[in-house]
């Protein structure tokens, strides 16, 4: 599935996740915009998670989408600052990123 972000039809502000009203102009009408790529801003390796042991590392990143909003994505592999990222929404509802 394709990840969608939300653009205010009144002022053009583009946000993720979705809101009811636009914080910039107060408008309440939105158009969905598909985003498929972005640029990696930061990444981290989650090595310890509460309630889990030996569950393995999780690679996460902040990705600036081509539409503007920043999303948190799970990476398939280690990526670096500035890398181009292909974004997807998988069957488990996860925003995922991989190298383009």
């Amino acid at each position: 599935m394709t990840l969608k972000v939300f653009q205010c039809t009144q002022c053009g502000a583009t946000l993720f996740p979705a809101r009811y009203f636009c914080p910039a102009c107060g408008g309440g009408q939105w158009r969905e915009c598909a985003v498929q790529r972005g640029t990696l801003a930061e990444s981290t390796v989650v090595r310890h998670r509460v309630g889990t042991q030996g569950a393995g590392d999780v690679h996460l990143a902040s990705v600036v989408t081509s539409a503007g909003p920043i999303v948190i994505a799970r990476l398939e592999s280690v990526m670096q600052f500035g890398d181009a990222v292909r974004l997807n929404l998988d069957d488990a509802g996860r925003v995922t990123g991989r190298a383009m």
């Binding site: 996740p17 989650v46 310890h48 998670r49 509460v50 999780v58 996460l60 948190i72 996860r94 925003v95």
Partner: peptide, 10 residues
């Protein structure tokens, strides 16, 4: 909705 499925660990 958006973080738990990533197993982000809080």
């Amino acid at each position: 909705t958006w973080l738990r499925p990533l197993e982000n660990g809080g």
